[in-house]
Design a protein around this nucleic acid. Structure first.
Lengths: 147, 147
DNA sequence: ACAGGAATGAGATTCAGTCTCATTACACTG
DNA sequence: CAGTGTAATGAGACTGAATCTCATTCCTGT
C-alpha cells in the first residue's frame, strides 16, 4: 500500500472531517491514543488513559466517538469473549489479523495466518449467508501464565 | 456415536450426578429447557422462560448451573459479538461447530468445516500460547435478509 | 467576530452478570 | 424412614460496562 507516511490518526481525522462538520479536541485525543497503542483497547482503558492525560475525555464522548469510527470502518470491534469490548485501528497497509486471548491474565496478542484466511474465504462462498466479516479468537494460557 | 436414544438432558443429568452429590430441581429445569431449544439461549432468556414455567429458577442459580455445565463441557458459550453471552448444549454426536450471525436479524446458524479446523489445529502449535479453545464467527446477512 | 449547530461533559440510568448469606432440600447413615 | 451433614437454591444487594439526557462548550463557515 502506498503512503505509509500518513499516520492512521491523520487519515482517520481526514475521513472524519470529510463526513461531518466539526472535529473537536476529544476526537483528536482518542484518535491519537488509539494510534499509539500496539493492540486493542477497551472503552474503559481509553477513558482511564485519557483521564490522566492533558486532554481528558468523558465516557459518553468516548463511546460516541468509537461508534462513529466503527461506522466509518476506521476501527474494528474485538470481542475477546469475556467482558469488555475492545477496539483497534483498521490500518490500511496492515494485514487483517485475529487474536489470542489469555484466559488467566486477559492479555490480547494479535496474529495472522494466510492458510486460515484462505480457508475462511473459501468457506464463505459455500455458506447460506453473504459473509461480510469474520472473527477468530483463540483462547488459552500465555507463556507468562503457564510458567 | 452410539446411544442417540438418550436425550442430551438425560446424559447431562448423569454426568452431573457423577461429578458431585446433589442434583436439584433447578438443574433439571435448566437442562430440560436447554435441551428443548433449537439454538443458543442467553441466561436472561433462560430466566424469563423459567419464570413463567412450573419451576422458576433464580438468576444466581442459573448462572451457577451454566458455569458448571460449561466446566463439564456439557454446554458451550456462544459469543455472537454483540451483547449477551449465549449457551447451547454440546451434543455428543455433533461435531465441533461454529456460527454464522446475521447482523440484520440476529439469527445464529451453526456450521462446521474440517479444513478450517485443521488450519486452526496447525496454527495453534506455532503460536506463543497454550491454546485450549477457539471461536469463529462469520458475520453478514442471511438469505432472508438479503432478499 | 459572530451565530448556529455540532460536539462534549457530568451524572443519572440501565442491564447483564456476580456475590452473599440465610434457607431449603438432597442423599446417605443408621 | 427419621435424622443429619452438606450441597443447592433463592432473594436481593451489588458491580461495572454501556447508554441516555440535557445543559454547556466550542468548532466552522460567513
Amino acid at each position: 500500500m502506498a503512503r505509509e507516511a500518513e499516520s492512521w490518526a491523520a487519515h482517520a481525522h481526514r475521513v472524519l472531517a470529510a463526513s461531518r462538520h466539526h472535529t473537536g479536541a476529544a476526537r483528536r485525543a482518542v484518535l491519537e491514543l488509539l494510534d499509539s497503542q500496539p493492540c486493542a483497547l477497551s472503552a474503559v482503558e481509553i477513558e482511564d488513559a485519557l483521564r490522566t492525560s492533558e486532554r481528558p475525555v468523558a465516557r459518553a464522548s468516548i463511546y460516541r466517538i468509537l461508534d462513529e469510527l466503527e461506522r466509518l470502518r476506521l476501527i474494528q470491534k474485538v470481542q475477546v469473549g469475556q467482558a469488555m469490548t475492545r477496539y483497534e485501528p483498521v490500518r490500511g497497509g496492515d494485514e487483517h489479523h485475529h487474536h489470542l486471548v489469555c484466559d488467566s491474565c486477559g492479555t490480547v496478542i494479535p496474529f495472522s495466518d494466510s492458510r486460515l484466511e484462505s480457508a475462511i474465504r473459501d468457506l464463505s462462498r459455500r455458506v447460506p449467508m453473504r459473509v461480510a466479516e469474520h472473527e477468530i479468537v483463540l483462547h488459552g494460557e500465555c507463556r507468562s501464565c503457564t510458567d
